[in-house]
Amino acid sequence: LDITFHVDGKNIHVHGASEEVVRIIEELIKNNARAEEIKETLERLLR
């Protein structure tokens, strides 16, 4: 699975993920999660 995301100002662009995963990533970023935390969360979800 190949998910890429980047933050452009306040806009979060996520590619290669389901809508549910996109929402989770957006929440994590809004809550100022570190990249490592986001990665760990995604790995748990995608197991």
Results as ranks from 00 to 15, higher is better:
2 D>W: 03
3 I>C: 09
3 I>D: 04
5 F>L: 15
6 H>M: 12
6 H>K: 05
6 H>F: 13
7 V>M: 03
7 V>I: 11
7 V>H: 05
7 V>K: 02
7 V>N: 02
8 D>A: 04
8 D>G: 07
8 D>L: 02
9 G>E: 04
9 G>Q: 02
9 G>F: 01
9 G>Y: 00
9 G>A: 02
10 K>P: 02
11 N>F: 14
11 N>I: 14
12 I>V: 08
12 I>H: 02
12 I>Q: 01
12 I>C: 07
12 I>R: 00
12 I>T: 01
13 H>Q: 07
13 H>V: 11
13 H>G: 01
13 H>C: 05
13 H>D: 04
14 V>P: 00
14 V>N: 00
14 V>Y: 05
15 H>S: 07
16 G>H: 07
16 G>I: 04
16 G>V: 04
17 A>S: 03
17 A>T: 05
17 A>L: 08
17 A>F: 02
18 S>H: 05
18 S>D: 08
18 S>E: 03
18 S>Q: 05
19 E>Y: 11
19 E>K: 12
19 E>I: 13
19 E>S: 10
19 E>A: 13
19 E>D: 11
20 E>G: 09
20 E>S: 10
21 V>R: 00
21 V>E: 03
21 V>Q: 07
21 V>D: 06
21 V>K: 01
22 V>C: 02
22 V>K: 06
22 V>E: 02
22 V>D: 00
23 R>L: 10
23 R>Y: 08
24 I>K: 11
24 I>G: 04
24 I>V: 12
25 I>M: 05
25 I>T: 01
25 I>A: 03
25 I>L: 06
26 E>N: 14
26 E>C: 07
26 E>Y: 09
26 E>P: 00
27 E>I: 10
27 E>W: 07
28 L>V: 02
28 L>P: 00
28 L>T: 01
28 L>A: 08
28 L>Y: 04
28 L>W: 03
28 L>H: 04
29 I>L: 11
29 I>Q: 03
29 I>S: 02
30 K>E: 08
30 K>W: 07
30 K>F: 10
31 N>D: 09
31 N>P: 01
31 N>W: 01
32 N>H: 12
32 N>L: 08
33 A>I: 09
33 A>F: 07
34 R>F: 07
34 R>V: 08
34 R>I: 07
35 A>C: 08
36 E>Y: 05
36 E>G: 09
36 E>H: 13
36 E>A: 11
36 E>F: 06
37 E>S: 09
37 E>I: 14
38 I>Y: 03
38 I>V: 14
39 K>L: 15
39 K>R: 13
39 K>N: 10
39 K>D: 08
39 K>G: 11
40 E>C: 05
40 E>A: 11
40 E>R: 12
40 E>G: 12
41 T>M: 14
41 T>G: 04
41 T>K: 11
42 L>K: 00
42 L>E: 00
42 L>G: 00
42 L>W: 02
42 L>I: 12
43 E>D: 13
43 E>N: 14
43 E>S: 11
43 E>H: 09
43 E>F: 03
44 R>A: 13
45 L>Q: 04
45 L>C: 04
45 L>V: 09
45 L>G: 02
46 L>R: 06
46 L>E: 06
46 L>F: 07
47 R>L: 11
47 R>Q: 14
47 R>H: 15
47 R>C: 06
